[in-house]
Amino acid sequence: MTTTKRVLFYFPKSETEKPIVYQLVKDYDLMVNIFRAKVTPDEEGYLLLDITGKQPDIDRAYQWIRSLGVQIREDVKGMRWDRDKCTSCGACITQCPTGALHIPNRKTMKVEFNSENCIECMNCIPLCPFGACTSQF
C-alpha cells in the first residue's frame, strides 16, 4: 500500500547542502514529483512536490527532513483561485493544461477550480484578466 502526499518543504534561510531529493529516493524508497522549487543559497526557499511511498517510509523521511531544520507543510496549495475575483469568463480554460480550471456545466458556464488537478504551471496567473489566479509564494 502506497500513498501520495502533496507536501511543501520550507527552508527557513538554512544552509542545508544535502541532496534531499536524492536521499528521499535512495534511502526512503519514495517516488517524487516536483511541481515548483526555489532554492537559493543564503535565502529562504521551498520545494513543492508529490511524494509516493509506504507510510512508514514517509514518516521516517519526515523525521529526517525535520532534523535538517526544514519545515514540512502538508496540503499546501501554492496556487490560489479567488472565486470573488473570477467572473467566469473562461479565458483560462484553454490555458490550463490539466483541466484544474474547468467549466463543469456548459449550460450555466461557471468556472470552477479543482486544486487536486493543479500542477502549479502558473500559466493562468498572468493570463487571467481579472487577477483571480495568484501564487502564495
Binding site: 473562461g90 479565458a91 450555466t108 458556464m109 461557471k110
Partner: peptide
C-alpha cells in the same frame, strides 16, 4: 478548444 472573454454566467 474554445474559451470566452465575456462571461455567460454573469
Amino acid at each position: 478548444p474554445t474559451a470566452s472573454l465575456s462571461s455567460y454566467a454573469y
